[in-house]
Amino acid sequence: MSSPILLAVEDLTVSFDGFKAVDGLSLYLERNEVRVVIGPNGAGKTTLLDLICGKTRATDGSIKFKDLELTKMAEHQIVHKGVGRKFQTPSIYENLTVAQNLELSYPSGRTVFGSLFFRRTPKINQRVREIAEQIYLADDLDKSAGLLSHGQKQWLEIGMLLIQDPELLMLDEPVAGMSVVERERTAGLLKEISQNRSVLVIEHDMDFVKDIAHKVTVLHQGKLLAEGKMDDIQKNERVIEVYLGH
């Protein structure tokens, strides 16, 4: 472990037809840190995740992950380097079972011929069961994923990322639409999985943010508005003005 910085975003800018969704943003994420990004709608939070995982290409600036420049890399290569990203709406394979969803996300047999001649080993079965237990779906392995509840689908997608053991996990509003009980379990899950990896979360639910965040970054109109501990952020006058409200 050479540097404590896992992800370094510097002067990142993306412009869509002149509109700068992210504008000269810099952000540093340490290893094993849980960072929550908050901000009003249109602040550029999701775009930031899109830029890091390669879904959107940066107009300017750099994203360094363990000294690897991500802005020029293809999406699947970024994943291979250890960046996992969960989408806002649960993106799971509804026509496959929970076990198949997890197994397809297992990082082997990722080429065409590798997947044609892929063999399920006891080790992979073992790993699928471990993850399923972690995401509270151990009893639903053979269930079609389309039949899961909304909260369970969110967990499943987190599980599909966990099975790849990423060093950086990015979650876009993981508790949106969840019940109170599900939120608590998700917070528990996040604390558990952030033991040995960095997590970057977008979230609106302040109680949840307070519960999990080590540090909070506030975005506004594509720019950094404030950064720091949750308590300080909540007292920050500009943050109160544009986002939290009085």
Partner: peptide, 28 residues
Amino acid sequence: NSRYGQLLIAMRDQEDRVRFSGYDVANI
């Protein structure tokens, strides 16, 4: 009936999820 066949179904339903699970969707 191979893992590749499941990938086809997965890709048809959630192309981005397949891509961001580390697969080169174009090759599939």
